[in-house]
Computed example of a mutant assay.
Amino acid sequence: MGFSYTVAAVIMLSSTLIFFGIVYTSYVQSNENLANANQKLVKNIYDLENTRVSIYDYYYNSSSSYFVINLTNNGSQVFNMSLANVLVNGSLVKFNVSGQFLFPLQTVSITFKEPAGSYAVEIVMPDGYEIFKKVVS
């Protein structure tokens, strides 16, 4: 009888160690994931707080049916304009931009083809910053 108690105790002790080893590694992994998510959140908040892009001018070219919107970056972020989006009345449109990157204190022109009229234009920068403008040709 003494040997069976010893074997049972060894089995219980080893299974307890294995269980707590699995729980510990899961705990460490989840804490690391939370820390990484928190760092990304802080970076995104920093980027949004330092973004100052504004529309300073727009016009309609009636001969080619193109709207031209001029943007100025007054913040400290650099934007890859190929990752930006332009929505006209809520629909995504294809657009051309005068430069691939929008550096601080720089101006770029965005052009898109629409017939003459009144439109609600939204420009969404790669970090999520949005600019709204009602444009009329």
Score class of each variant (00 low, 15 high):
residue 86 V to W: 08
residue 107 T to S: 10
residue 56 Y to R: 08
residue 93 V to T: 12
residue 88 V to G: 06
residue 109 S to C: 00
residue 134 K to G: 10
residue 126 P to T: 08
residue 54 S to G: 07
residue 93 V to S: 07
residue 64 S to K: 03
residue 52 R to F: 14
residue 96 N to L: 08
residue 101 F to P: 00
residue 48 L to T: 10
residue 96 N to V: 04
residue 72 T to F: 07
residue 111 T to F: 02
residue 81 M to A: 04
residue 48 L to E: 08
residue 63 S to G: 01
residue 133 K to Q: 12
residue 46 Y to D: 14
residue 97 V to A: 04
residue 62 S to L: 00
residue 61 N to W: 01
residue 62 S to M: 00
residue 78 V to D: 05
residue 92 L to I: 15
residue 70 N to F: 01
residue 72 T to C: 10
residue 124 V to L: 12
residue 42 V to R: 12
residue 63 S to Q: 05
residue 68 V to K: 03
residue 80 N to H: 05
residue 58 Y to W: 14
residue 80 N to K: 03
residue 38 N to Q: 13
residue 75 G to I: 09
residue 118 S to I: 10
residue 65 S to Y: 06
residue 40 K to Y: 14
residue 84 A to I: 13
residue 73 N to H: 09
residue 42 V to T: 14
residue 89 N to A: 05
residue 109 S to E: 05
residue 51 T to C: 06
residue 121 V to Y: 06
residue 56 Y to E: 11
residue 127 D to E: 13
residue 74 N to H: 08
residue 103 F to E: 14
residue 57 D to A: 10
residue 117 G to K: 03
residue 104 P to R: 02
residue 83 L to A: 14
residue 33 N to D: 12
residue 43 K to Y: 11
residue 121 V to W: 02
residue 68 V to L: 07
residue 113 K to F: 05
residue 108 V to F: 02
residue 105 L to R: 04
residue 41 L to F: 15
residue 40 K to D: 14
residue 36 N to G: 11
residue 95 F to C: 06
residue 102 L to G: 00
residue 82 S to V: 11
residue 53 V to Y: 02
residue 79 F to G: 02
residue 59 Y to F: 14
residue 105 L to A: 08
residue 121 V to G: 08
residue 75 G to S: 10
residue 107 T to E: 06
residue 72 T to M: 12
residue 133 K to S: 11
residue 129 Y to T: 09
residue 37 A to F: 08
residue 74 N to M: 12
residue 94 K to Q: 11
residue 109 S to P: 03
residue 125 M to E: 10
residue 77 Q to R: 11
residue 111 T to M: 05
residue 60 Y to D: 02
residue 79 F to Y: 11
residue 97 V to H: 06
residue 90 G to R: 07
residue 96 N to Y: 04
residue 101 F to D: 06
residue 109 S to H: 00
residue 84 A to D: 08
residue 73 N to S: 09
residue 132 F to K: 11
residue 69 I to V: 15
residue 57 D to G: 10
residue 117 G to D: 02
residue 103 F to Y: 11
residue 55 I to A: 00
residue 130 E to F: 07
residue 33 N to P: 04
residue 33 N to G: 07
residue 36 N to I: 15
residue 66 Y to V: 03
residue 111 T to R: 03
residue 128 G to S: 07
residue 109 S to M: 01
residue 34 L to S: 12
residue 107 T to F: 01
residue 85 N to Y: 15
residue 117 G to H: 03
residue 44 N to E: 14
residue 96 N to F: 09
residue 56 Y to P: 04
residue 63 S to W: 00
residue 51 T to W: 10
